[in-house]
Simulated scan of single mutants.
Amino acid sequence: MPLPSQQRKYTYTDYLTWPEDESCEIIDGVPYMQAAPSWQHQSITGELYRQISNYFVNKPCRAFAAPFDLCLAEYNETDDEISNVVQPDVVVVCDESKLRKTGYFGVPTLIIETTSPATSRRDRVSKFNMYEKAGVKEYWIVDPEGKFVNVFILQQNKRYGRPETYTDENKMQIATFPDLIIDLNTVFANL
């Protein structure tokens, strides 16, 4: 991947030209390289994906795990002009008509990011603001080290409210899918 220019706004078109073996995201037109996740990150994300994906068998929504491109358009951007291309750890989509090319072009219902020291700031600030602005109904930030999950729900004022916090001792009910219960003891069990 070429070194990014400070003055240039990168898009989905640029993203498609970068080597497939290099994991990266674009947030507000700025590319970010991603390091390989830790085994703890993969264990947590894998278990969350398993529980959520199993719930959606024979239901209209679907869960996807990274690597999976989520393309969030701003204003009237065409697919090629999109300047926000991210790879959430787990994403739930309920409008299959927006599945195309390398992922999903639209606003998902639920996004889960498992933080690491390298991504914590981006997950808690840049992505938080981007997901809120886009209208993602539910956003989770999972902290492997502290073994807790912060859940943000989009309010009527189009802002995320105070987070609900769950620990490894909890079973949590999903706000957007009330009959889906996640066992966090199982999620954090192997750490």
Rank of each mutant, 00 (worst) to 15 (best):
M1N: 10
L3M: 12
T17R: 14
E20L: 11
E22D: 10
S23R: 15
C24G: 15
I27Q: 01
D28Y: 15
D28L: 14
G29H: 00
G29V: 08
P31Q: 05
Y32N: 09
Q34L: 15
Q34T: 09
Q34S: 10
A36C: 11
W39C: 03
I44E: 00
I44T: 02
E47R: 13
L48V: 07
R50N: 03
Q51I: 07
I52S: 02
S53T: 13
N58S: 14
C61I: 09
R62C: 05
F64N: 03
C71Q: 09
C71R: 15
A73K: 13
A73M: 06
E74W: 04
N76G: 07
N76R: 14
D80Q: 13
E81M: 12
I82T: 03
I82P: 00
S97M: 13
V107A: 12
V107S: 10
T109K: 13
L110W: 10
L110N: 03
T114F: 00
A118L: 12
R124P: 01
V125T: 11
S126P: 02
K127V: 01
F128R: 12
M130N: 07
Y131K: 08
E132M: 15
K133Q: 08
V136W: 00
P144A: 06
G146D: 04
K147T: 12
V149L: 05
V151A: 09
K158Q: 08
G161A: 09
R162A: 07
T165H: 03
D168K: 14
K171G: 00
F177Q: 06
P178A: 08
I181S: 00
N185F: 14
T186H: 13
V187G: 04
L191H: 11
L191K: 11
